[in-house]
Design a protein around this nucleic acid. Structure first.
Lengths: 246, 246
DNA sequence: GTTGCAATAAGTTTCGAAACTTTTATAATA
DNA sequence: TATTATAAAAGTTTCGAAACTTATTGCAAC
């Protein structure tokens, strides 16, 4: 029943300063170890490293991330606000559950946000915006053109580039709250995407074609066409996920 | 009428160690002193106890709320996710700024959410839902029918009852994420409402009339009319606030 | 005056121990 | 065997101090 936790407890040496003096590349990441913990935790939940409804015990988390309880609580609290984690007083944190109903809701809101954001983005985007879209599409297509096995191996990269592509599309939208809400729903949907990816792989080439079509319509400033393609793209993905959720 | 938010009232938890026991009524919130800190902090920001862009120093906050640094950080982190607070690495927390542009965005999203939530609520609401609306409207109208001076004095109560009324309207909506997003925008708007209240008071009687009309149309299950009234109600309020924001 | 640079103060971030709660295991009783 | 009481374990929540960062002050040198 009980596992490895006790055994390694005595070797809890924190080596906070050990990395400090390396002058090689001192990014601004050093002063916000709590901020990237948030990203790491969210990524691990999205990737189902922690399955839905898993209890998130501090004894496990401190070991995994090498950070203190307070820091972890802070990050988990933010994930509660984002809807990835639930908190029951006195019982601690859990990964939020998934359900077909929840997926349906998230999909509807995401479609609504993304379409509006794309329309505004197309209206306001400049050359730099266009260029970033083309670049991020290319970066994504490199992975999507790979063989099945290779694509599976680099799935983590695909997720990052897929997110970057969709972010690039809407980057010129000037409605800050719309972007914020869109981002919220995007991450929720990403968790469901992983769920489906774990079960079976869909026709992969079509996805690449869809992304290209969306990219081209966007760069051509055809908001009507771009949003229609985008909506179908999102809905088809969600419906295929719904199939895997018994 | 009944507070069905926490269905289970089975928690009998005794007081914590060193609470000032002047409280005759013992709520079940005592287990999570961190959770009601979140509500208190949010309320203080909404009420402009902390003005926009105010620095939120821990030395001040620990004294004001009588809680430790860790607990405060946790609550502030959640408010960052909700958009009430900003965090700059190494510089600490600040109350999020306000602007006309931000208000315009928040208003649009809130209108969109509230209209859809009300429509769904009207379609699904039962007798209990109806009754709660009538009750919360009455509770609100008691304050709105008061004289100007008295209304000002009890403005804190008005805010609570106003929120409860609007929550009652949409309570039967079955889209959890829609309610969540609506709530997010509602609180944002509430901060702007306070901003306007501090400057000058609008025609007060009309507001009461508007609330009554919304209530009646909702109870009559006239979604078309109710949402139209609601939209105008929200937009007029926001526009009057826009006037005060130079 | 003002620019540069320590030294100091003020404030933030992180951590782990202590207090408290829930759960599990053990014992006692019928 | 089943039930309840009691003790131990596991886990959570809170707090304050230590480590670290940023802002301020003081003081030369120009």
């Amino acid at each position: 029943m009980h596992r490895d936790i006790r055994g390694s407890g005595s070797l809890n040496i924190h080596l906070k300063k050990s990395l400090k003096n390396s002058e090689t590349r001192d990014d601004d990441a050093s002063l916000s170890s709590g901020q990237d913990l948030l990203a790491r935790l969210r990524a691990d939940i999205v990737k189902h490293t922690f399955a839905p409804e898993t209890k998130l015990k501090f004894s496990d988390l401190t070991e995994r991330y090498g950070l203190g309880i307070g820091t972890l609580r802070e990050a988990l609290s933010q994930l509660v606000s984002e809807g990835f984690v639930t908190l029951e007083a006195g019982k601690g944190f859990r990964v939020a559950p998934v359900s077909r109903h929840d997926l349906a809701e998230v999909t509807e809101h995401y479609v609504s946000f993304e379409k509006r954001a794309l329309t505004r983005s197309i209206a306001a985007g400049d050359d730099e915006w266009e260029t970033r879209i083309v670049a991020s599409f290319h970066s994504l297509s490199i992975i999507e053109d790979l063989s099945w096995a290779e694509r599976m191996r680099r799935h983590g990269d695909w997720v990052d580039r897929h997110r970057q592509f969709h972010e690039a599309l809407v980057a010129a939208c000037d409605d800050r709250w719309l972007l914020r809400l869109r981002s919220l729903m995007f991450y929720q949907l990403e968790r469901y995407r992983f769920l489906s990816k774990m079960n079976r792989e869909k026709s992969p080439t079509r996805k690449g074609t869809e992304h290209r079509a969306i990219m081209e319509a966007t760069v051509a400033r055809d908001a009507q066409k771009a949003t229609a393609l985008l909506e179908r793209h999102i809905r088809e993905t969600s419906e295929s996920i719904l199939g895997t959720l018994a």
